[in-house]
Design a protein around this nucleic acid. Structure first.
Length: 549
RNA sequence: GCGCCAGUAGCUCAGCUGGAUAGAGCACCGGACUUCUAAUCCGACGGUCGCAGGUUCGAAUCCUGCCUGGCGCGCCA
């Protein structure tokens, strides 16, 4: 029995109790959940529904719990219902009802965990979005891992997700970039506030190799811009690919300008009565919609602001049919939330259509000291550097196991260590251990068969493992709903722990000279189910599930 | 000055939108491999959940105020 099924039984038992007691059913929620108690004495699952609804229904929680318990105890698969404390319902399942989850999981395979909590949603998920003036740095790396994981988690929850990378290959940043390339190609130091670092020299040299006459061209800087941007972007894309992060769309800001979408957006905003002129500039009145102050769309010199492009880009996404626009930004950009939300409202969108997720800073630590990030100084720590130092799996895992609300001190020494203080190994090792058991079973010619007796999975360790396995779809759903992929990593650690404990106490394969018992055969189902869930969880994080370690 | 994020065990962090005795990993101490991977497991140690109020059957979680740290507050991009 799944927790979801049990929750439905709890709710219908409550409904029946209400009817018999003559209570007002309006006090009942449409849906409820059961939790997995930490203390095994509290049964397999616990419900707090009696305490939650008793007050609104004007009755005593313990008495109500008593009524619910009596009805719930008769439900199929339920072995026992106890009442504890102020009105907890502690439910113990029949072993067969708990054990059948393994069958479901094995049958579903890679689809297990899929849920419909975001069914029908069209989500545009934008992250990284670094301009091609340098390699992706540590903050972008965080989103490359978390954003990609979130896209996977949302897809696993039924949403249609398009992952998108927004960039600009014109403008002042790019001008500085091309001027820096040109300067280095001429053997001169980069201009004041220009970009430094080895990658500038490398790209400058590569542009010269491609286009030996570049310095004699009519507009040398333009030659360095065109080739430099292409080379830089190729490198960024190659590194992201190596990292396992795929984007469905690379969106160039230039497209918005070429299609006149900024004018269109401003016109739309004007029609909504949100635009005004002052001091020779064109403004969006965002202060009416929760922003600190109004924002300029078109400067007094006639040029557009970055914000105007943001408005056009947002409108573009909405017109492409997305009902949910999610943008992931670093904490240094959180000041944009106000104007962006106001802009969304100015277009007439409901709150929640635009979601801006803020990821706190990532500090690289080496030998206990922070590695300072500065693109200009060329001491920048890049995605490529981190992959090289820590490896793709450990980097992705390290960045996705923490809440984006927390800043991360990413200790290079810790995550490079191939030891057990490195959490990614704990999870991967569980998978490798399972793969070993399954390999051995195959070598012995043992087969788990077409079915098993679920009631044989009655050992406390088996019970613990089964409950952890049953939880996975709800974890995926909550990770998607709350936009918190770190829940997947924490869950994977929880599940790996349950497996390691099971493995210690429960022998799966027969000892030499013995036959595979029915319990052993049932355990092969449980082990395969665990492998499936660990692999699925790691896949959602973009981390590999190794067969051997 | 205003805003956002954080403050939980010696360290790094979870805590399932209000539930039971607040958890995990690491570190430290003590145990467990003649048989499926000891990168594992078991036990012990360790916390006034930043502080003070409030809301209620019940608060780490919600509200208010304060303290500390990080990041922001352009007709820059």
């Amino acid at each position: 029995m799944t927790p979801e099924t049990l929750a439905e039984k709890v709710l219908s038992a409550t409904r029946a109790a209400f009817a018999d007691l003559g209570l007002d059913a309006a006090a009942l929620p449409a849906k409820t959940t059961v939790e997995r108690p930490r203390n095994p004495e509290h049964g397999d699952y616990a419900s707090t529904i009696a305490m939650q609804v008793a007050k609104r229904a004007g009755t005593d929680p313990r008495a109500l719990a008593q009524e619910i318990a009596g009805r719930l105890a008769d439900a199929e698969g339920v072995a026992e219902v106890d009442i504890a404390g102020p009105g907890f319902l502690n439910v113990t399942l029949e072993a067969a009802a708990a054990g059948e989850i393994a069958r479901r999981i094995v049958a579903a395979g890679t689809a297990y965990g899929y849920n419909e909590s975001m069914e029908g949603r069209q989500v545009n998920l934008e992250f990284v979005s670094a301009n091609p003036t340098g390699p992706v740095h540590a903050g972008g790396t965080r989103w490359a891992a978390v954003g990609d994981a979130l896209a996977r988690v949302m897809r696993a929850s039924g949403a249609k997700v398009v992952s998108e990378y927004y960039f600009n290959d014109a403008g002042s940043q790019i001008d500085t970039f091309s001027a820096s390339l040109l300067a280095r190609a001429q053997g001169e130091p980069v201009p004041e506030n220009g970009y430094g670092g080895a990658y500038i020299d490398r790209i400058a040299a590569e542009v010269l190799r491609r286009s030996p006459d570049a310095l004699e061209a009519a507009d040398p800087r333009e030659v360095f811009r065109v080739h430099g941007v292409e080379l830089m972007f190729d490198q960024i894309k190659a590194t992201l690919a190596e990292f396992g992060t795929h984007f469905d769309v690379y969106f160039n800001e230039k497209e918005l300008h070429d299609k006149g979408e900024l004018d269109d957006a401003v016109e739309r905003l004007s029609k909504e009565g949100r635009v005004f002129e002052a001091d020779g500039a064109l403004w969006l009145r965002t202060s009416d919609l929760g922003d600190d102050k109004d924002r300029v769309l078109k400067k007094s010199d006639g040029s557009w602001t970055y914000f105007a492009a943001d408005c056009a880009y947002y409108l573009d996404k909405r017109e492409r049919g997305f009902d949910k626009v999610v943008i992931m930004l670093g904490a240094d950009h959180h000041g944009y939330i106000g104007r962006m939300q106001a802009m969304s409202r100015a277009f007439g969108d409901e709150p929640g259509t635009l979601e801006i997720l803020i990821g706190q800073m990532v500090n690289l630590m080496r030998e206990g000291k922070p590695v300072r990030m500065s693109k200009r100084a060329g001491t920048v720590v890049t995605l490529g550097d981190i992959i090289e130092a820590i490896g793709v799996d450990a980097t992705r895992y390290a960045l996705t196991r923490y809440s984006a609300d927390s800043s991360i001190d990413l200790d290079i020494d810790l995550w490079t260590r191939h030891g057990n203080d490195n959490p990614v190994y704990y999870v991967q090792y569980a998978h490798a251990r399972i793969a070993g058991v399954l390999r051995n079973a195959a070598e012995l010619g043992l087969d788990r068969g077409g079915d098993y007796d679920a009631a044989l999975l009655s050992h406390p360790r088996e019970n613990e493992l089964l409950k952890a396995l049953a939880e996975f779809p709800a974890v995926v759903a909550s990770a998607a709903e709350l936009r918190e992929p770190h829940r997947i990593a924490r869950y994977a650690e929880d599940l790996a722990g349950a497996y390691h404990r099971f493995y210690t106490d429960c022998r799966v394969l027969p000892y030499p000279g013995e036959d595979l018992s029915e319990t052993g055969r049932a355990r092969l189902w449980l082990v395969e189910a665990t492998r499936v869930v660990l692999a699925n969880a790691l896949a959602l994080l973009g981390v590999t599930a190794p067969e051997r370690m």
